[in-house]
Design a protein around this nucleic acid. Structure first.
Lengths: 262, 262
DNA sequence: TAGTGGTCTAGACCACGTG
DNA sequence: ACGTGGTCTAGACCACTAT
């Protein structure tokens, strides 16, 4: 579907032989960046859905009227950004939150021995309300716009370890109910991606150590005042649009937050 | 210096026309990976020192007897790993811990308003002792091998915010004294790099929330039991050899640890 | 003007996965 | 055997920096 969105290419004069002309464009954008943009559009529009294969490099090169090498460089960057996944001999696929390591990418909690333990989610509530000022600001909404609030606990080895408080734009997540959440097995982000077409691309976290407030302490089964890791995350989708605010409290006895500086 | 370390290249048969022969090598390593290895060797051996310019791509291509494109791909990866820095029109340079953003790369503490504030270091002590078992294990030393231990405080806006306890291999850091540390202005890693030829390439951190122990609390000017961010870092140099263990306690009131998941 | 990194192309061959 | 991504080459031209 969608016959011809091709060839917004070759806007800067350099084609191998001599297309000549075209001013040295004061705002220079490499061809492969333009191709990258076109591919991103197709991802965002849903032309290629998560888990699906995208056209081969030669096919895309034909569609965009550029060389394979140029398409290649565009895909290289998108793969580095975790939007695409290359598989030699098979093809290039749209990334998914269902992949093995995608889980750990957004929840970097490891046991003291360094092992990555599985966890289960206990949903506490899911309700719709008007966005508090701070949440509205972070989600780039107007104050009092509708939002969905989810509360849940995560248990590692049957030990309650994480309390999450999640806010989502109400308009983008219609029909999201506690039942719906309970039915679904697997990562939240996989559900968001599959059911609401919203894919988290990147996230930014602010991490602090805080004393557990009574309400939080009780849910986590620790004493009030117990030191907790406070993780405030804002997640972004295509176009760097914020679509989730998540406030987490982690009990870091027996588990730690793993971070690699590279 | 060092005339001919060239052309460990072309071990796999693919040269454009027809060099023929050479078995489909069961252990296949791309040419550009081999070049990357050779460049890394030159960095490690000190042939090109931090801050210096390395030979141009065409020059390296000539030295290694490969095409410029192959050298280019090798350098691309090294630049992505922060070992090299490319500057269009000027050349490619060996990365340094003195660059503007290099600081934030290893100390991601921001003020509540998101601003990156400067800090000053107050050195408490620097002594040599035998490695405790745990430190020896992490530094890949034998138990009771000599190590250097440094303690220091970091103040942000005149507020004591961080206590660091640093362990280094004694053999690698001879002549490192409190005086030496006090003389030096700037990041520790810059000193290590300039004075001891040890460059930190990457680091891995384990982050927890802990209650301040009395001794730590006093140094940081908080009450005992106050929630602190515990950051246990192991830093690695070339060849993924561990060369520093750093245990930090951060007061996260007014400041937070910034982390980006991408 | 000359040199460096950055982009783009076209074509060849290799390694991997599937028929 | 075929198609896909992965590597390598050679050559052209562009953008930036210095002289």
């Amino acid at each position: 579907m969608n016959a011809n969105q091709a060839s917004a290419a070759n806007m800067n004069g350099q084609s191998g032989e001599g297309t000549a002309a075209s001013a040295p464009s004061p705002t220079f954008s490499p061809l492969y960046q333009q191709i990258k943009g076109l591919i991103t559009q197709s991802l965002e529009s849903g032309e290629w859905k998560p888990g699906e294969i995208i056209p081969s490099e030669v096919e895309l090169a034909g569609r965009y009227k550029v060389s394979q090498g140029t398409v290649r460089k565009a895909i290289d960057e998108l793969a580095a950004e975790n939007l695409l996944v290359r598989r030699q001999g098979k093809g290039t696929f749209v990334a998914t939150h269902n992949e093995d390591r995608a889980q750990f990418r957004f929840l970097r909690l490891l046991a003291d021995d360094g092992a990555e333990h599985p966890h289960i989610s206990k949903l506490l509530e899911c309700r719709r309300l008007r966005a508090p000022a701070e949440i509205a600001r972070q989600l780039d909404l107007k104050p009092a716009d509708p939002v969905v609030q989810i509360k849940r606990l995560l248990q590692f080895d049957s030990v309650t370890t994480v309390l999450d408080e999640i806010w989502l734009p109400g308009a983008m997540f219609r029909g999201l109910t506690l039942e719906r959440l309970n039915e679904y097995k697997g990562p939240l982000y996989a559900l968001f991606e599959a059911e609401f077409g919203t894919r988290m691309i990147r996230a930014s976290e602010k991490i602090r150590a805080v004393a557990a407030e009574p309400a939080v302490a009780e849910l986590l089964g620790v004493a009030a005042g117990f030191p907790l890791l406070s993780v405030e995350r804002v997640s972004y989708t295509y176009g760097d649009r914020p679509v989730e605010v998540r406030r987490g409290w982690y009990v870091t006895t027996g588990y730690y937050y793993q971070n690699d500086l590279s």
